[in-house]
Write a protein that binds this DNA or RNA. Structure first.
Lengths: 123, 123
DNA sequence: AATCGTTATATCTTTGAAAATATAACGATA
DNA sequence: TATCGTTATATTTTCAAAGATATAACGATT
């Protein structure tokens, strides 16, 4: 529409509003898109190392994410076991499932917000 | 409230939803909080180098931001003059003012969204 | 033409984060 | 007790982004 922001851009059709969303605790981010996917893959594979490999993330980083998550929660979201049959593994707790679900819903609302902002930009 | 996400966190009172917002063109971010502040300071000081210094940003980076902005717009947002009285300087165009205003309003709406999400988290 | 502080650009250096590598500890199973 | 693949942790290496530095070009004013 006349008078919109897109009018003053060189490539009006390729424009959109984008963003990122996360949950902070103690002033620092602890639960964004990365940890969500990691938890989901730990649930699927039963292993931190396999989940990390699937995401092409170093085991170290994955382990740090898990550790940080557990530290912020009243009860752990991942139960790791070093040693045992097949060398060990990790399982996620009901709290983790709850977190994942919540984040997914939140992201849907955020996606709507972004779409609305992108639409607004053009009119 | 019982059953909320905050119940399963170690520090429920310090939790909040946070995020970042920007405008993309051609798939890459070109207008976020940094450029906004830079444009505002160029307007105030009449100089890219002074604006950069105020933000403790290298002149190089500031110049790159300005260049990138100008490249994405149908008409430049910053008019630079090398040489002249006092060595030169830069002014911003009405298009720049429009962009700044729009981004400010957008950020206010985003702040409301984040507050609503933070509130939702706790109930 | 000499001066000024700025814009414009190239090049070198730093440095901090990510990745890669290595190694130890673990515990059920056979 | 030997094996397995995992968790747990430290150390080293790599690499790209940021920063620092240097230099040229610019043009109104004097």
């Amino acid at each position: 529409m006349a008078g919109s922001i897109t009018d003053i851009l060189k490539n009006p059709e390729s424009i959109k509003v984008s963003g990122s969303l996360w949950i902070e605790s103690n002033g620092q981010p602890f639960f964004g898109p990365g940890p969500v996917e990691l938890l989901e893959r730990i649930e699927a594979t039963g292993s931190i190392s396999m989940a990390a490999k699937e995401m092409k993330m170093s085991y170290k980083k994955a382990w740090e994410l898990v550790n940080n998550l557990n530290a912020q929660m009243a009860n752990p979201v991942v139960i790791p076991q070093a040693g045992g049959e097949k060398g060990g593994g990790s399982t996620i707790t009901p709290e983790a499932v709850k977190l994942i679900q919540y984040h997914r819903q939140m992201r849907e609302r955020f996606a709507s917000f972004l779409e609305a902002e992108t639409a607004r930009l053009k009119k």
